[in-house]
Amino acid sequence: SSSEETGNTSDEGNSDQGEKAETVVLRLAENQPDNNPVTIAMYEFADLVEEKTNGEVKIEVYANGQLGEETANIDQVQAGALDMARVNSVPVAQIVDEIGVFTTPFIFADQEHKYRVLDGEIGEEVLAKFEDHGMVSFGYLEAGTRNFYTTDKPIESVEDMKGLRIRVQPSDISVKMVQLLGAVPTPMDYGEVFTALQTGVIDGAENDFVSYYTSGHFEAAPHYTLNGHLSPPALVIMNKQTWDGLSEEHQLAIKESAAIAIEAQRESMNEMQEEFRKEVEEAGSVIYEVDVEEFQEAINPIFDEMPQYEELIERIRALQ
């Protein structure tokens, strides 16, 4: 963490208070560009914290991956070289094993179920585990629901996926899932995906509506299937030592601000998913409704390989 005297922050709101409190500056890494709802939420979070602490805690948001990519940010937060980062649960699951359960296929029946789980006891328990790994986290952001999309051949049933080269994130779960669906999981650097779709190196990829639109992938792969295989939440993580170094008041202010920002972010993210769904449809993408249960059944054997989540999964399903 870095503490420094900053004249410009204390001048504005509370010049009448006279005392010059030391401003705590926390740096937060965000890998999405400025216009993404997650990034907007981070700016809002920063504003709220500043407001609630009378400018005593100042969060500086570095958006657009300026401070490096996600996994590197996690390394940095854990090491204490970076104070905070907004990251997806998938890479965090490599450290905090328990959160991996939220990154399994079809774990949430619908969004209501998802929020019930995340905001309830189970979500709290998982957040508490972060402390064992030198970090803290304050709740779950909406990161969209991932679906498959393809270039030429639409996916209208599991059968259609046979032999398709689908770009996935290089995680065991994604790889295994695509294999179980009969497709060929193809690893590829994210920056290359657009051209690879265009030229036919791969037949498809998977992501939520927002990324599908902002990455321009919809232009090259106009068939979008609403199968909803993954819905991993995002989080703000913070180094535990830095957190412990804050006063209780400041900690409370951060927690409250996070809660408000998350609430707003979920709403705006969901709106944006709808908005971009319309955008891509207008641009000529075709959206396919499918029998989700068929996909679920095909993927089910994946859970045999995750005995560590058995109990958690049961509890999550019980909340449906």
Binding site: G163, R165, P170, V175, V184, P185, T186, P187, M188, D189
Partner: peptide, 10 residues
Amino acid sequence: FNSPLIWADE
């Protein structure tokens, strides 16, 4: 062969 190695890039 339509069967790329997952670990190759890494």
